[in-house]
């Protein structure tokens, strides 16, 4: 257990105590806890985010649920643009379902302190495309960018340049 505890993030108890569904951590050994947290994402922050460990490294992986994102015209007032159904295949209670918009813009924001220090991270956009989806083919890429704000050393090069992504 002493060895396995070293593989867990320093603040793992704080994270577990904030889980949406109580994790019986006291009944688990540190090894069991490590496997539980790497095999099965833990919903945190009222269920708006999920927390998981990368099994090979013990590094933190955070996923923001759609409700945690800022989606243009996705505030629920215009369900003919965006709808908020329940999705049994999602770890989150609700997903954002796009019906059609003329301007697609999504922002996500999180505290970098939630992540493992001194670690190289990749940000992914996770989605499903229906068979009849359109507007996402090779001729219609989207712009994507990851930025890090407010670094103590003022290094604004800590983020990647804008790139084109192809959902289709």
């Amino acid at each position: 257990d002493v060895l396995w505890e070293k593989f867990l993030p320093a603040d793992y108890q704080e994270i577990i105590s904030g889980a949406l569904h109580l994790l019986p951590s006291a009944a688990l050994s540190e090894k069991e806890l490590y496997y539980r947290l790497s095999d099965d994402p833990l919903l945190i922050d009222g269920g708006s985010k999920s927390f998981q460990l990368e099994k090979s490294s013990g590094k933190k992986c955070i996923m923001l649920g759609a409700k945690e994102l800022a989606i243009s015209w996705g505030d629920g007032k215009t369900p003919w643009y965006w709808d908020w159904p329940r999705c049994p295949g999602s770890r989150f209670a609700q997903v954002a379902e796009l019906h059609g918009v003329w301007w697609l813009e999504i922002h996500g924001k999180m505290e970098i302190q939630l992540l493992s220090p001194n670690t190289f991270y990749v940000a992914h956009f996770v989605f499903k495309l229906r068979d009849d989806a359109y507007g996402f083919d090779d001729y219609e890429p989207m712009k994507a960018k990851v930025e890090v704000f407010g670094r103590a050393d003022g290094d604004t090069n800590a983020c990647s340049k804008e790139r084109l992504i192809y959902l289709g």
Binding site: V122, V146, R163
Partner: peptide, 21 residues
């Protein structure tokens, strides 16, 4: 950057990277 299969019908695409130093 192209989307790829993630499992169970989900797709993922790399939006960018950063170093949490």
């Amino acid at each position: 950057y192209f989307a790829r299969e993630r499992g169970n019908g989900w797709m993922e695409v790399e939006m960018g990277h950063f170093y949490n130093g």
